[in-house]
């Protein structure tokens, strides 16, 4: 595909064509990201918004303060809880759904695929409002359904032990369709001959799944894993709408804390430090998954 270098006119046009995108991304994304790092080393607060002269450089002061702030540790723990429990659960549900809608015997595959995907396109705030009522301890459909199965009443959003599981269930319902589609695309790329050859060798359905499908899906697992991790660390709207971070801070996530510190109390230096920590965790999580996948592949 390597062609001779283009004319000067083509080179100029290339830069002109990417200029609007690069300008927008640079000014409204690149510079703010760099500024976030600088901001995290200052005591930027409400007074600084009125008068920039009051801003002082405080070194690692905000980070030190975070380490001594129990709410930060709670938020970090809650975020990890959501990512490490909700993430794998969501991937598992997505993969199961993909296997179902992609099964050879399944009819009306397109219809089921669309139905399963529908929650993904709904407005998060709207469905969070709906789920708040589904989780109502006395009148909610969920407790009614569980009651029919003989399970006692659970105060889903009012009990600190159940609030995060409740948010995880709602998030899995909302998001599984997206990864399901990616898995379906991956499954359709598994060569049918591989399955046929394994079946001829007498492999059971489980063996075929374990030794043909799963290895072939490895790149898909990486894509889904990275996307899900990055998304999960950004949990914000669900707790904002459903629990306001409660009860007892049990659903306060890092982004929710960032929002409260930055935009409710205008402690922007502190909030920026939280965003930098968030960035480092996402980066480490992504790098870890890529390394795990490489090791599994080799």
């Amino acid at each position: 595909m390597n062609r001779a270098p283009g004319s000067q006119a083509e080179g100029r046009a290339g830069w002109w064509f990417v200029a609007p995108a690069l300008t927008l991304i640079g000014v409204f994304y690149g510079i703010p990201v760099l500024a976030a790092f600088l901001l995290s080393f200052t005591d930027f607060d409400l007074y600084a918004i009125g008068n920039l002269d009051t801003v002082r450089f405080t070194g690692l002061g905000n980070y030190a303060a975070l380490l001594h702030n129990p709410v930060f540790w709670t938020a970090l723990r809650n975020t990890l809880y959501f990512a490490l429990v909700g993430g794998p659960l969501s991937v598992l549900v997505s993969l199961s759904a993909a296997l179902l809608v992609n099964a050879r015997l399944a009819r009306a595959k397109g219809v089921f695929r669309t139905i399963y995907f529908t929650p993904v396109v709904t407005t998060l705030v709207a469905v969070a409002v709906v789920w708040r009522y589904l989780y109502h301890p006395s009148y909610g459909l969920l407790n009614y359904g569980l009651g029919q199965l003989g399970i006692g009443r659970i105060d889903w959003l009012g009990d600190p032990r159940w609030s995060m599981p409740a948010i995880i269930v709602m998030a899995v319902w909302k998001n599984f369709g997206y990864n399901m589609l990616i898995f379906v695309a991956g499954l359709q790329n598994v060569p049918a001959e591989l399955h046929e050859a394994a079946a001829l060798d007498g492999a059971s359905a489980w063996q075929r799944f374990r030794h043909v499908t799963v290895p072939a899906l490895a790149p898909t697992f990486l894509l889904v894993g990275v996307l899900t991790t990055i998304g999960n660390f950004q949990l914000f709207s669900e707790p904002y709408v459903m629990t306001q971070g409660g009860p007892l801070r049990s659903t306060t996530t890092m982004v929710l804390l960032l929002y409260e510190e930055g935009f409710r109390w205008w402690r922007m230096g502190v909030a920026a430090a939280i965003s930098v920590v968030l960035f480092l965790i996402v980066l480490a999580g992504t790098a870890l998954q890529i390394r795990l996948q490489r090791r599994a592949a080799s």
């Binding site: 901001l39 950004q234 982004v255 960035f279 996402v282 992504t286």
Partner: peptide
């Protein structure tokens, strides 16, 4: 890989 929230505080300013 940079979460959008990292840019939001300076972007608001």
């Amino acid at each position: 890989v940079i979460p959008a929230q990292v840019s939001m505080l300076p972007l608001f300013l």
